[in-house]
Amino acid sequence: MGITKLAELIRSDAPDAVSYKEIGDYTGKVIALDTSIVVNQFRAATPLLSPLTGLFFRTLTFLEHDIKPVFVFDGKPPREKTPALKKRAAAAGWNSFNRTGIASSQTRDCLQLLKHLGVPVIQAPGDAEALCAHLVREGTVDAVASEDMDTLPFGASAVIRQLNAKRDSEVTEYSLPKLLEKLQINQEEFVDLCILLGCDYCEKIHGLGPKKALKLIQKHRTIENVVLHINRETHPVPDLWKYKEARKIFLDGPQTPTPELIWTEPDEEAVVEFLCHTKRVKEERIRNRMKTFRTLRENRREERENEKTAGRSKQTCMKDFFRVTRKREQTMETADSLSVNKKRPKSK
């Protein structure tokens, strides 16, 4: 669900915090992706097809544009999220939801495919969006790609929506620093605003719209003070309201080591063996996409080499694309972030 009507509020009250771009604007950037969002997009768009095929195509598109993707998987959800997950499961017609964080068969398949494609994967201790935001704050990645707006209260300075290769698709980027500046609130006050708007970790005050919630936070600065100055009859406060627990989830963030990220060349034969021979995807389709990937990559390499020779570009050559990216300004220790075998392949 994310944060209720946050995007709408930003567009109306802080439009300068929103910028519109194309996928090519993220060339050379390291982008963390909430994998469940990506997978669910393909499940909704093509319910009769395996989301693995969509994940395969999307990942190659990122690599073609020299975007370095980092796929983050959900872990065990916070217990405060249980009511929201139950409601979401009921709406989708599911009998249950994953409350343990143990990887499902679909998650294991995604991990296996991404391993063959040579991109890093990370298992979050809790919600993936929290770890994605943590990676941005630590300087390990440049931005988060997610449709859920709760990456902003988690502290991601840059959040990207609609990051895909559709020609008519406009990528939307939200800047947290610009947002806070325009709204004239700090991060802690912004978290309280998001809780008032409605989040996954607690109930909200009924009847309190986004405009009113913003004005109350700008004037009173904390939920505690807001509660003292609202009409409790028209805006009843939930019983046993767990807003403090929700606030702590947003502000504390995950306590996990910063991982080392390594990209390697996609292993075409391993991809074909997995997708075609195991998952029964048509081999011709996969082979043709890999051929297109190699051609586009070589063409872009030549373009950059020509530009560099002409002195018009300082972009990194494609031969340097598959390399280790380390946390800025300090050497990172290898973390225990999970891939299929809890080990990442070394650079080739």
Rank of each mutant, 00 (worst) to 15 (best):
C110F: 02
L85M: 13
D252P: 07
N95R: 07
V226Q: 12
Q187Y: 00
K182E: 14
A84C: 03
P51K: 12
G253H: 01
A45V: 02
D168Q: 09
A17H: 03
L251D: 11
V141Y: 02
F57I: 10
P51H: 15
A130E: 13
E273K: 10
K346Y: 04
G28Q: 01
F62Q: 09
F62P: 04
Q184G: 08
A145V: 03
L296M: 13
R326N: 11
F42Y: 12
G209M: 09
C202G: 08
Y174E: 01
K282H: 13
E129D: 14
A213K: 06
T295M: 15
L251P: 04
A92Y: 06
G75L: 01
D34R: 01
K219V: 01
L180D: 13
A7T: 13
T140R: 13
E268V: 05
A270G: 06
T264Y: 00
E298F: 07
P51V: 06
L275G: 12
H220R: 12
C132P: 12
P47F: 05
Q162D: 15
I230V: 09
A89V: 01
W241Q: 06
F154P: 12
E22F: 10
L111K: 15
S175I: 13
V171R: 09
L135Y: 05
A156H: 05
P78K: 05
I185F: 03
N288G: 06
T140P: 10
L183E: 11
R300C: 04
I217C: 09
G24F: 00
V227P: 14
I230S: 12
L52Q: 10
L6M: 07
R297W: 03
G253K: 00
K81G: 05
G209K: 10
N231W: 01
A32K: 01
P15D: 14
K248G: 08
T107Y: 02
T325L: 09
T222G: 13
Q162E: 15
S169D: 14
P177M: 11
E8G: 11
V70N: 08
N231Q: 04
G207V: 02
T59Q: 14
E329L: 06
C317D: 14
H65C: 10
P236H: 00
K212N: 11
L152N: 08
G2E: 13
I102F: 12
K21M: 10
